[in-house]
Design a protein around this nucleic acid. Structure first.
Length: 531
DNA sequence: TCGGAAAGCGCC
DNA sequence: AAAGGGCGCTTTCCGA
């Protein structure tokens, strides 16, 4: 059964909807959290406009729910697939969040025409004969619950450790200036380049200084510098790395984002066109390896870190139905299995061949491996090639569960086009083909990850007792990696749950496909100790 | 003075 | 050694 919630001018209105789709009479709800806690015992699927606005106040009040349907996220999926009519009430972007002084989200009235009961009916009808998309809607929605829960719980973060890492790398803080070691490096660069006024943070200035010193470079980028032999290269690369650490995750970041021993990034489910999550503020999904030393569990607790190894290659094997690639995907090290199968000679070749298949690489090692990959894995290669060709023609492609790519635009030309126009259009078409090629794999990998998370979430809840943060709970997610914060005595059980959930996600999406979704799991006292 | 673009690099 | 796909974020620069 479903319970649809709606914010009206005079409070929250709730409507029961049976599995037959027949709604009851709306009732007024005064104390939402208390009411939800009571009704949750019936294990309904909560239906609401947007998990990001409804769920945080419930979590803050100590209420966790098992299931929901996030109408806005689901609407976007179905609209993209052309399965719903345009609807201004639901087509728009996510509502702007406003925060109250106590940090809770204000619930603003929703427009009159945004009727959750009617929208639920349309969405249910759209997927009634489409079990894969129905699964996608469920996965998307449970992902939204996890996102809110991870923000609520926060990633355990030791500010003192973070400060230690920064001071170790950058030197002592200097008010209004660069930290000591960084400034010393800047001084060395000025000396080596004989540019006393150089600000190495300015790309144009730096480029001019490099060129004046006789370096033949077109940019200041790392990969170009690596090809040059010159005494300035090593200290410059070190400077760049440290300057980035300071600006992206330095003391200012620490002050802004870490409170009471927790980093609470805001995740944006489906924030990326492929269905991957994005994050809003704090750069959560780009947390540098160096700084993960500050992620330390509470006393008596552990972090369990799990990484889905070679996820996208396995996903490609499963979704394309390529039997030879699936056989390789049964091994823990899929790249080595590709070597053992005789497709290529070295593990490195297998890796680059696979990356080329997924990203559309045409040059270098990827390009060289392509014929061998096509010989060894014709079905999988044809699958991604078809996605690329469709994209080049401006067609829409879809993931395994049915998320659709945006249509390509401006990829055709007529006879009046000049040669230059034709060339540039062809380049755009090729680029869009690389995008759609990657879309089907990256998007399906994101679906697998949502299923993994959803399955794990249920298992973690069943492992412990008490409130969400008293039980083992998810605290971090980056595309194919999960981090669980758990009481130490449950860490082994959590590790098992992570592996079982991965297997379950594989079965749920690709029932029958003989691909093993291997995960590497570590139980650690620091995030940086994983792997 | 402010906002957006570009460059560059962190993550997957 | 990247490359080839997807992002977010910071700094600097430049034009409205």
């Amino acid at each position: 059964m479903y319970i649809a919630l709606r914010r009206t001018a005079d409070g929250v209105e709730a409507t029961d909807v049976g599995d037959d789709g027949i709604p009851g009479s709306p009732v007024r709800v005064d104390d939402l959290a208390a009411w939800v806690a009571v009704r949750e015992r019936e294990r309904p699927r909560w239906v609401w406009s947007d998990t990001a606005t409804w769920y945080p106040p419930l979590l803050a009040a100590g209420v966790r729910v098992e299931r929901c349907q996030d109408l806005r996220l689901c609407h976007a999926i179905l609209r993209g697939a052309g399965m719903l009519e345009p609807d201004p009430a639901w087509d728009g972007p996510r509502p702007v969040r406003t925060t109250t002084p106590d940090g809770l989200f204000e619930l603003e009235p929703e427009p009159d025409d945004a009727d959750p009961v009617a929208e639920l009916a349309r969405q249910r009808s759209a997927v009634a004969d489409d079990p894969k998309r129905a699964l996608l809607l469920a996965a998307e929605s449970v992902g939204a619950l996890v996102a809110a829960e991870m923000t609520f719980a926060g990633l355990p973060w030791r500010a003192d450790e973070h400060d230690r890492v920064l001071t170790e790398h950058l030197g002592r803080r200097v008010p209004g200036g660069r930290p000591e070691k960084l400034e010393a490096l800047a001084a060395r660069l000025r000396e080596i380049l004989d540019a006393p006024a150089l600000n190495p943070d300015s790309h144009p200035e730096l480029l001019r200084a490099l060129q004046n010193a006789g370096l033949r470079v077109e940019s200041t980028s790392k990969w170009e510098l690596l090809e040059i032999e010159h005494p300035v290269v090593a200290p410059l690369l070190e400077y760049k790395q440290l300057a980035r650490l300071l600006s992206a995750n330095g003391w200012a970041w620490l002050d802004q984002w870490v409170r009471d021993g927790r980093f609470r990034p805001v995740y944006v489910p489906a924030g990326v066109v492929t269905g991957r999550w994005a994050s809003d503020g704090g750069g959560a999904l780009q947390l540098p390896k160096q700084i993960r030393r500050a992620v330390i569990p509470d006393p008596g607790w552990k972090l369990v870190v799990a990484d889905a190894s070679q996820l996208e290659p396995r996903v490609l094997a499963a979704m394309s139905g390529d039997r030879a690639m699936a056989r390789a995907g049964q091994q823990t090290d899929m790249y080595q299995a590709i070597v053992d199968a005789g497709a290529v000679e070295t593990r490195r070749q297998a890796k680059y061949g696979m990356l080329g298949a997924i990203y559309g690489g045409t040059t270098g090692e990827s390009g060289r491996m392509k014929p061998r990959m096509e010989r060894a894995f014709p079905t999988a290669m044809a699958y991604v090639e078809a996605a690329a060709r469709a994209g080049e023609r401006g067609e829409v492609v879809r993931t395994w569960l049915g998320r659709t790519s945006p249509p390509g635009t401006g990829l055709g030309y007529d006879e009046t086009a000049t040669d230059a126009q034709k060339r540039s259009t062809q380049q755009r078409a090729a680029a869009w083909g690389r995008f759609t090629r990657n879309f089907v794999v990256q998007g399906t990998a994101a679906e697998w990850a949502l299923s993994w998370m959803g399955s794990l979430r249920r298992r973690l809840w069943d492992l412990g007792s008490g409130s969400l943060v008293e039980r083992p709970h998810l605290v971090f997610f980056v595309h194919d990696e999960l981090v669980v914060h758990t009481p130490a005595e449950l860490a082994d059980a959590v590790a098992d749950a992570l592996r079982e959930s991965a297997a379950e996600a594989g079965r749920l999406l690709f029932r029958g496909a003989p691909v093993e979704f291997a995960v590497s799991v570590g139980i650690v006292d620091r995030y940086s100790d994983a792997k």
